[in-house]
């Protein structure tokens, strides 16, 4: 049984705004029947102010698809179209107090229905910009298509690199066989052979000095610079998800960071922090703890 939040269950048992809106002037139909999820969103938009006066949904789908649709209509009612377009799937998931990773696509469907409805109102053509494949990484909800595309675009060679770019495989590690299969397939297309034992191209260059210095031989400044460099190298993948991270302070073995954007308050933030910590431990060669800056001692933070 899925671990649904009370809010998800409540919205499923008592959906708000079910059914088509009377006198709707915007309709968004999205979903995939083969996946078992499809949603029609109807909006009544005030032509003068572009305010969404009413919203209704009709959904063919599971409990979380119905709850996500219900949440979406509640969120956008009263918003202008421009404001509504800034609603992200994470907003929908947050409204519902979280969704299981396998069910995040339900919230994505909600956001897409909204984009489709706005496009319909404005007489534009809406086309979906991503294809969804089989879910490979259940910890971070990453599907096969995304992994394959990222591997191709960045010429990735190892499971570890895939984890660094997409987060897939960065959690429980049970999907590593699946990731290796995707890597092997892409390699084969290029006429190469995938070598699961290949070393990762080091993200931080190893110079003779750093090799000699080692983890313990670094000066404080060298160490902080290295931490900075590692965090810098991790930012692009977070930005892909609309998030970001910045280094705030280093106190002994504790490193404080600021999670911003979509990462802030995201249920995955804790796991992302874990990933950053793991990477830093590997790069520094010694144990460190990564904590959000909110957990900094108040005096030390100068507040």
């Amino acid at each position: 049984m899925w671990d649904y939040s009370e809010t998800v269950k409540e919205h499923f048992y008592n959906p708000r705004n079910a059914g088509a809106v009377e006198e709707a002037n915007a309709t968004g139909d999205v979903g995939s029947l083969s996946c078992g999820d499809a949603l029609r969103l109807t909006l009544k938009v005030n032509p003068e102010t572009e305010v969404i006066e009413d919203a209704g949904f009709q959904t063919f789908g599971c409990g979380s698809a119905i709850a996500s649709s219900s949440a979406l209509t509640e969120i956008v009612k009263g918003m202008t179209l421009d404001d509504a377009l800034t609603v992200s799937n994470q907003d929908i998931a947050d409204y519902l107090e979280g969704l299981p990773p396998e069910k995040m696509h339900c919230s994505v469907m909600g956001r897409e229905a909204l984009q489709a409805a706005v496009a319909d109102y404005r007489g534009e053509e809406w086309s979906d910009d991503h294809e969804e494949g089989a879910l490979i990484c259940k910890c971070f909800a990453v599907d096969a298509v995304l992994i394959e595309e990222t591997v191709r675009a960045n010429n990735l060679k190892t499971v570890e690199e895939v984890a660094n770019y997409t987060k897939a495989g960065g959690g429980c590690a049970s999907c590593h066989e699946g990731i290796e299969e995707i890597l092997a397939m892409v390699f084969e297309e290029k006429g190469e052979t995938f070598d699961p034992t290949a070393d990762v191209i080091p993200a931080v260059e190893s110079t003779p000095e750093t090799l000699v210095a080692g983890a313990t031989g670094m000066t404080n400044l060298q160490r902080i610079r290295k931490i900075e460099k590692v965090i810098e190298s991790l930012r692009p993948q977070l930005q892909l998800d609309g998030g970001d991270v910045e280094l705030v302070d280093v106190m002994g073995d504790t490193i404080y960071v600021n999670m911003t954007g979509a990462c802030n308050g995201c249920q995955m933030a804790a796991m992302t922090l874990g990933g950053i910590q793991q990477r830093l431990i590997e790069e520094l060669g010694s144990f460190v703890k990564v904590l959000p800056s909110t957990e900094m001692p108040k005096t030390a933070a100068g507040v």
Binding site: S34, G36, C62, G63, E132, A134, L135, K138
Partner: peptide
């Protein structure tokens, strides 16, 4: 036999 009960995308 729905897709959602299994966590896969296919029924």
């Amino acid at each position: 036999g729905s897709a959602c009960t299994s966590g896969s995308l296919e029924p």
